[in-house]
Nucleic acid binder design. Structure first.
Lengths: 131, 131
DNA sequence: TTGTATGCAAAAATTTTGCATAGAA
DNA sequence: TTCTATGCAAAATTTTTGCATACAA
């Protein structure tokens, strides 16, 4: 993998983003920095960076795959149902082994919490639609 | 929504399945009962049944949408990394509000646990590849 | 009849691949 | 020159939609 302008741009976008971003989002950010960059190049570099362990895939239920910097401590994600933004949730839950049947082996887990972020909770106060 | 043979077949497949199934899976089961049934009909009925509240969408991270009978008590899912089967996990976790920042409002959550089911855990004992 | 449901094929939406060419070593 | 990277377009995947026809009331 050569250190081209496209490769550098995509790596930097991922490094600078706190929350996970989708490939089309990365593409539109990259377009501003490298006009004409193709979406295929974005997908290819996201793949390279994932294999290299520099970024991690973040799969949220029912959503297209996102990517975030690797190396963060174990964490989960919060999806705001107002603004659709995704936030990191540090911390985790207790013993998951108590949830699985006897003989089942737990390797890992994903938790996604849905709700309203601080801003949307404030804006929606009083006008909440049944969710 | 008329009670046709296709509608009845698809509803029954969903009623009888313990674990969530994908639309293509429903289609192949339905093909055995109603030869020539189209995948579009399957998607249309899955949509109708979802709107009617008879079945529920199950979104697992990184996987195509699945469907299961509605009305089950709150539960989560276990994905076996050996056989890829999906199991229901009854029970739940403690207080999720402790995980979210101040001012955030929790509405719901999804938990997916990955590992090996009893059979795959037994088969894999000793031959485990690093996962 | 009158209207809904169906199957097929085409269309969307997201991601991957093939290929000729541009660019880097 | 030699090889990788790129952009474009086409393909693959999953789901939705349009439409003419079949079927039900």
């Amino acid at each position: 993998v050569r250190d081209t302008r496209q490769a550098r741009t995509i790596r930097e976008i991922l490094e600078q983003h706190g929350e996970p971003v989708t490939a089309p989002e990365v593409h539109s950010y990259a377009m501003a920095l490298v006009p004409g960059i193709g979406i295929a190049t974005v997908y290819r570099h996201l793949h390279h960076l994932t294999v290299a362990g520099e970024i991690a895939r973040v799969e949220l239920p029912g959503q297209p795959c996102r990517f975030e910097r690797a190396g963060k401590p174990h964490h989960h994600h919060f999806v705001c149902q107002g603004c659709q933004r995704v936030f990191d949730l540090m911390g985790c839950l207790g013993d998951l082994r108590s949830l699985v049947p006897d003989g089942f082996e737990v390797i890992k887990h994903d938790l996604t919490v849905y709700g309203h972020c601080r801003r949307c909770a404030a804006e929606n106060a009083g006008t909440r639609v049944g969710v």
